[in-house]
Amino acid sequence: MAGSNPNAKPMNLTLKVWRQPNRQTEGQMVDYQVKDISPDMSFLEMLDVLNEDLLHQGQDPVAFDHDCREGICGSCDLFINGRSHGPEKGTTTCQLHMRKFSDGDTITIEPWRANAFPVNKDLSVDRSAFDRIIQAGGYVSVNTGGAPDGNEIPIPKDIADRAFEAATCIGCGACVAACKNASAMLFVSAKVSQLALLPQGQVERQTRVENMVAQMDIEGFGACSNIGSCAAECPVGISLENIAILNREFLTAKAASNNLA
């Protein structure tokens, strides 16, 4: 029952899916067949169909991360046919629709691969490294209450807009997954430049970038080679310019901060 296009033909597909029982056990690619997939389905709905089939057969369904299914929560994290979130540009897996595939296709589905993102099970990975990077300094230290009036500090609109563009990062990790070096620079730079651009972020500007970069390195992400895969695969279009800002912030902070450690 297709909604938009009553004539859309259902598809049969072969899926090659990474199955791994838990973090400790090594996994493998397993082949599955799915039938009668509507082109109007989202990619995750196609996986729902597979999982319902597996459950009915008494097999363990494929674990994968997802939640809002409207492209904003950043939960979904599938590496589809060799690319973060699949073939469509500027799209999360949940917003990728099956009409981008053809009947008879074989689709390879893998988890994000990075040592900093260990696999929980099957396609689900642990991205708490991102949380720890934010905890290292991705905030403005302001306690609840006592904030000045919101209009106290005017912010030029173009600066506010640029800060907003950096702030739209959904923390999905597609950048790390797509990067040849499994680098988290785009993620880190988005937060650093958001707060470096805004007047509210000035007070902790130097310590923030020093601490966040240090944490990023501790987590075991690779370095940036300015390849650009991250920005190309980012579902919300975070720009490479942010990485340049991060580098600049890091260099000036290291050169000028009073931190001797």
Binding site: R83, R113, N115, S229
Partner: peptide, 17 residues
């Protein structure tokens, strides 16, 4: 060292030079 387990399929040519 940041990615000791590689991908089965890798289409980097779609997103970089």
């Amino acid at each position: 060292g940041a990615r000791s387990h590689g991908y089965a399929q890798w289409q980097a040519k779609q997103n970089s030079e």
